[in-house]
Write a protein that binds this DNA or RNA. Structure first.
Lengths: 356, 356
DNA sequence: CTGAAAGCGCTTACAG
DNA sequence: CTGAAAGCGCTTACAG
């Protein structure tokens, strides 16, 4: 619900104009730095503005000029460091452009997303950056966003949406991670975590399969372990890896949260990532570099992606009719200790460790 | 800079009114759910609104009604999980109240804070939640915020500011953590990390000193190790603990980032927190529970604090003249394995481990 | 139950 | 160089 404003009437242009004995137009020109106003008048007006503590009402100006000075960002969950970094990047670039950020989160719920989008769009942002909740349909977007707010989809695509898109090269990232394990001699490599519903998980699995195929290895379904992409779920599922026969010697994880969880699960079994089992992640969240052991992962630099997304959406707001931009950002493999372990010699397959 | 709006003219109330052959007032009444409008008219108008994809211009309404439907939040750094969680909590509560969140960040710079605040205030938020950058003065606040936006200070106080405040009981939290180490038999307890400039650090040191005093122990200045409150700095400084003679057997850390960094620094020296050295943190960020070993820490529940801050600032916006509220939230100690290590027997003081 | 009119705080041609 | 006037999209007494 809208809130009442504080008690005392806000100072307006008219107050300043009256106090200086000039018109509101003149004060407005002073504010916009127009050269058409006399130096003496300007000084007088500026002093009065400071004296009265006038604060510009940008909403009113936007209404009159038909402009906007905000951009909306909608993410699934701010407490996910990946999105927090991304939001920090968006904020940086928007602040540089003199824009303000409207933030909403969906908690991965399509209904909440609908409500959040509707509420944000009413505030007239110049553009909207959305990391869509899982299961978002084209209709959900059309309903909520309408056709008047430029939309940039981040991270996940929505079938049929012909708007701007900024994503990560999931296929290539997972391919790089898998190829690195293969280069170290691993042949039994699991794909760990995520679930098939998500397009990014499908793409990462595709890159994984491609690397295996390139090396003449098969992607065995039994080495595909599904779990929710959280650290706790991943830790709890670690045992599943060793229930397979033969057990894998390495795992390409859906993302860093899963990889860090898996490393905890391994530790609980007396195994150490990088020594006894090789692990890779995806995202390169800040924690990855300082975990024990440091996590080999695919770097997406979410903060830089945030800046990029902000730049793209501001550009779109200036040129609404340009054809949609689709940017799939290249990734880099950050090789660290967690993937250092060599596979055991083929003659001595590892025995499953005892389940605690 | 403000952005031009998308190409096509936005649909307005007037468009709907004209299409339905009614006045704008009637359409407005339909939108606000007024009972004064006939059922037939209402249905017709609602259909037309959907058909044309009309989106309400809340900015215009706010201007006319002199209301606001946003709240601004300014934090130091979104990529700090503590603030990310806090922001998520603020967002939750605001969404429930039908308000939108304007987000800015300062990167702990007073100048950037001034610019960010000025920009946000121009958008006319109903209130402003600020975790002030270090070194913020009362004048900085007065300059930037003026007297017309209700202000809630979070986490750090500003001398002389008589606005709402929501904080954490830093003194009691550090006292609890220290007392727990003393109860386990530790007598040589360091205070690790943070720097004296910050009020929260001073308060936590006070709690630490109080616990020591309560147990008849002295707070030795040589067991006070300053470092920037980041994981990397904390890891790098770990050696300083063992350069003291006698070396401490436990450390109360300024916050979780520092504690996790210290645990890494210990690991680099072949020491394990909870076995060879006791460590406590402050904040209970999500990582604390899943680190190895899990970190004993002071739980502040930042997400709940975020909801609370949002509630407080909305209440303030409704009653601008009520006396300032000062809420210092109680804390709880989450006891986990990192503080489990007993002190070594007094007869055999630990030798300093080799510096790598 | 519905409409005409004024006004929120600003900007911007247009005269002077 | 400065002012009077219209208008952005909405709301809200006030008449009818």
């Amino acid at each position: 619900m809208p809130q009442r404003s504080p008690s005392r009437r806000r100072i307006t242009l008219a107050d300043i104009a009256q106090a200086c004995g000039v018109s509101r137009a003149t004060v407005s020109l002073v504010l916009s730095g127009s050269p058409m106003v006399g130096a003496a008048t300007r000084t007088r007006v500026e002093a009065e503005i400071r004296r009265q503590g006038y604060v510009y009402n940008r909403g009113a100006a936007n209404l009159r000029r038909n402009t906007s000075s905000s951009v909306a960002l909608v993410v699934n969950d701010l407490s996910n460091p990946f999105f927090a970094e991304f939001a920090a990047g968006v904020d940086e670039a928007l602040a540089d452009a003199g824009c303000v950020m409207l933030l909403g989160s969906t908690g991965e719920s399509v209904e909440r997303q609908r409500a959040v989008l509707a509420s944000l769009v009413e505030h007239g942002p110049a553009g909207l950056i959305l990391s869509p909740a899982e299961g978002t349909s084209l209709d959900d977007l059309r309903q909520a966003v309408g056709l008047h707010t430029p939309l940039l989809l981040f991270n996940r695509d929505v079938d049929g949406a012909d708007c701007d898109f900024l994503g990560t090269d999931n296929v290539e990232g997972a391919r790089l991670a898998t190829a690195q394990l293969i280069a170290r001699g691993h042949t039994r490599i699991a794909f760990y975590g995520g679930h098939a519903g998500s397009s990014s998980c499908r793409q990462r699995r595709e890159g994984y399969a491609r690397a295996l195929a390139d090396a003449g290895l098969a992607a065995e379904p039994r080495w595909r372990i599904e779990c929710a992409p959280t650290r706790l779920q991943a830790a709890a599922q670690a045992g599943a890896l060793f229930a397979r026969d033969p057990a894998p010697t390495a795992a390409v994880c859906y993302n860093d949260a899963v990889a860090l969880g898996l490393m905890l699960g391994l530790a609980a079994r007396g195994l150490r990532a990088g020594d006894d089992f090789a692990v890779t992640g995806f995202d390169d969240i800040p924690e990855a570099a300082v975990s024990v052991p440091p996590l080999t992962t695919v770097a997406t630099d979410p903060r830089a992606r945030g800046r990029q997304a902000a730049t793209m959406v501001l550009a779109r707001a200036r040129v609404p009719d340009a054809p949609p931009a689709r940017v799939v950002h290249p990734v880099q493999l950050a090789v660290r200790a967690s993937s250092a372990s060599p596979p055991p010699p083929p003659s001595a397959p590892p025995t499953s460790p005892p389940t605690p």
